[in-house]
């Protein structure tokens, strides 16, 4: 089990220090698109330099190393409790080494014990599958972007949003408008149409596991994703909200069934510092393959 803790530590290190290729590509495209000599271009240039520097120095891309969210696909009979213990060990070690900031605070006392381990941290979601392999994916999601996430209940009268896809489009674009640059744009939206208040948010975050360069298999949602990105990028909010051409790098939209009485649209905003990585593990816990 020592091997598993080491693998998880390496997963945390790489997630914190390296932006995945699909996201970096979208950032480079955005950098080229910004007008020469603008503060938007200047911001995108600093972002690109920062990505290179973090990787080279093996240090956090962003000092807010965020909520630590593991998604584990595992076979039947997998020792989930053992995994949780190793994950907590890896997080504690990663914090001591400076891959993660001391980022977890007791909500009642305000105390930060400096370990990043406590109620709800790290968050671990298990999903069983009928395959022998174990896949562990990790998202580190900073507080600035988490704070601009939002949930709408349709119909929404001020936004003239009805209970249909056009209503969903209106509220998603409102979320982009309200976020401005506060979530460290250009951002990426994870959206869930439907579900309840808890599952909707949860599913919206899971959309962020999808690569940016792969289309949505659902044609309607694929069209909506493209429409949201194109429209958002006409608004002129731009990198960091400085004004400019790229407001969103992507939108990933999923759906869950809903109750007849409820129609939630949940939006999770991810900053450009989109820290997501994953590994496939061998039976002994060693890393076999990187997933992004």
């Amino acid at each position: 089990m020592k091997m598993l803790a080491d693998s998880l530590l390496e997963l945390v290190r790489r997630t914190s220090a390296e932006i995945p290729d699909d996201v970096h590509q979208a950032i480079l495209t955005a950098l080229e698109r910004e007008k020469h000599g603008t503060i938007a271009e200047s911001a995108m240039r600093i972002i690109d330099q920062n990505i290179a520097l973090a990787k080279q120095k093996s240090q956090p891309v962003c000092q807010d190393t965020g909520s630590i969210i593991f998604y584990v696909d595992c076979p039947l009979g997998f020792d989930q409790l053992g995994f949780e213990e190793r994950a907590r060990e890896a997080v504690t070690t990663a914090t001591r080494k400076g891959y993660l900031r001391q980022n977890s605070v007791d909500s009642l006392t305000g105390r930060n014990d400096g370990t990043n381990v406590g109620p709800g941290s790290p968050a671990i979601h298990f999903h069983q599958h009928r395959l022998p392999e174990v896949k562990v994916r990790l998202i580190l999601k900073g507080g600035g972007c988490e704070n601009v996430g939002t949930q709408y209940s349709l119909p929404n009268t001020p936004l003239k949003a009805n209970r249909d896809l056009d209503g969903c489009r209106k509220v998603i674009l409102d979320a982009v408008l309200q976020a401005q640059g506060k979530g460290c744009g250009p951002g990426i939206l994870g959206v869930c149409i439907g579900g309840d208040r808890a599952t909707g948010y949860e599913h919206s975050k899971q959309q962020l596991l999808r690569r940016l360069d792969e289309p949505n298999p659902n044609p309607e949602l694929n069209r909506l994703e493209q429409d949201i990105v194109e429209t958002a990028n006409k608004l002129g909010i731009g990198p960091m909200g400085f004004g400019g051409k790229t407001t969103l790098l992507g939108a990933r939209i999923g759906m869950l069934n809903r109750l007849p009485a409820s129609y939630f649209v949940s939006v999770s905003y991810m900053c450009w510092a989109y820290r997501r990585q994953g590994v496939r593990l061998a039976a002994d816990g060693a890393i076999q393959e990187w997933l992004y």
Partner: peptide, 13 residues
């Protein structure tokens, strides 16, 4: 003054 959010390495330098 607005620093570039997320640019933790460039700024730490």
């Amino acid at each position: 003054l607005h620093a570039v959010g997320g640019a933790a390495q460039v700024l730490a330098e």
